[in-house]
Amino acid sequence: MSLSLPEVKQVAWLARIEITDAEASAAQGKLNDIFKLIEQMQSVDTEGVAPMAHGQDVVQRLREDRVTETDRHVLYQAIAPQVEDGLYLVPKVIE
């Protein structure tokens, strides 16, 4: 498996990371080296093996339905790039 240049660009697009042609070419080589390493996984037969998501076989704990949080928006918005009237501002959203 190796990534083509368009695939590298498509992945960067999905990840919303701007990438120049030169950067994409450089990334392509390194990514393909890494995927060679990753491909070693295919050497082992995992038929019938259950995937493991966590180190511990535990289940989800449930929180009681209670309101525990108070308004801290002033504190949180003090570190925001751009706010107005309590809203986070972003370039126009088009639906």
Binding site: R63, R66, V67, T68, E69, H73, Y76, Y88
Partner: peptide
């Protein structure tokens, strides 16, 4: 529900912007 699905912030409708957005929601 009274609180959100993954946080303890209120779900009440009609609050001023972002006052019911807790650390998890933000």
């Amino acid at each position: 529900t009274r609180s959100k699905i993954f946080s303890g912030a209120s779900t009440e409708f009609g609050a001023a912007p972002n006052v019911q957005a807790c650390a998890v929601d933000v």
